[in-house]
Amino acid sequence: MASSETALAAGQRARGLAPFLRSQMRNIAPFLTLIFLSGFFALASPSFATLDNLGNILTQVSVTGIIAVGLTFVILCAEIDLSIASIANVTGIAVAYFTLQESYVNIPNIPLPGAAAILLAILLCAFLGLVNALGLTMIGIPSFIMTLAMMQIAAGISALLVRGQIAYKVPGVITTLGSGSIGGIPWIVIVAAIMLLLGHLVLTYTRFGRYVYMVGGNREAAEYSGLNVKLILGAVMVISAVCSGIGGMLGVAHFGSAQQNEFDTYLLDSIAAVVVGGTSLFGGRGGIGNTIVGLFVLGVLNNGLDHVNIDSFLKILIRGLILLAALVINVYAQRLREKAVE
């Protein structure tokens, strides 16, 4: 038995490098993109490739990174969550709403102790995620539509809480994690790193993580294998909402204010990070490792474009084009892989 296994392994190696590279396309392409972009900006601007600037990039991608952890779970299941930015926003606003504000802030809020404010904010985002989950699994609304509705609902709650005003204060621990640093490293980078690591560990080493990949790989087969597919889909929607909520709370502390529409750009950024990194939109392939590469591609791109002094309106177009290229690669990689396995 052992000998036949070795023979087969040798056979697989004998297939050569090219087919191997082709099957790994979804992992290699984003990485090459990252190297190319970094090299380009390093040559184009002397201020890009510095340790200071690396710190900047890390800080800039942290909030996106925290939100993208949960979104990776959702996309691995071949679903989508369009409410992430809104939920981040409403959670950030909620934690401020339950914190005592300066007297000049004209919001009829409910000041509570810090721990209670944080707990209520987390409960709020978990609840909104649960509503997403129930709509998707029990009623059968496609996630695209369900979370589109939730995007509006969460924005509506945000609007009602702040009523066009801006709140500034959040509980001390949130302020520290969002805008403080330790030994020169911003806490928000550490939190993002821990959450990404946690996400990776869950996806790679736990039973739940395996289920996520299997449900994404072939939902019908998962059901015929006796998995509770609805429970798994529901769980990833809640995970996504909670990650968004944490990102929202820290984001508010990071920006120094809580207000309406503060997180709008994070929807596209988070989706882009996950997909540019190579996680399959069809589910079942990819992971946190891909998301991290995707985050850096976006981070380097955003940051680098500032360094080369480019028309800020052109920046938006370039980001769009990069995203399109990533989508093309994503779909193409899926096809190559299917062909290889057939």
């Binding site: 990949y213 299997m214 019908e220 087969a221 294998s225 006796g226 079942g284």
Partner: peptide, 23 residues
């Protein structure tokens, strides 16, 4: 096609229904 994961290795296909018994 309805009950197997073609892009996953054989062992993951075999263990999927009993994972909760193993771990």
């Amino acid at each position: 096609r309805d009950m197997l994961f073609h892009q996953e290795p054989v062992y993951k296909n075999i263990s999927i229904s009993i994972l909760d018994r193993i771990s």
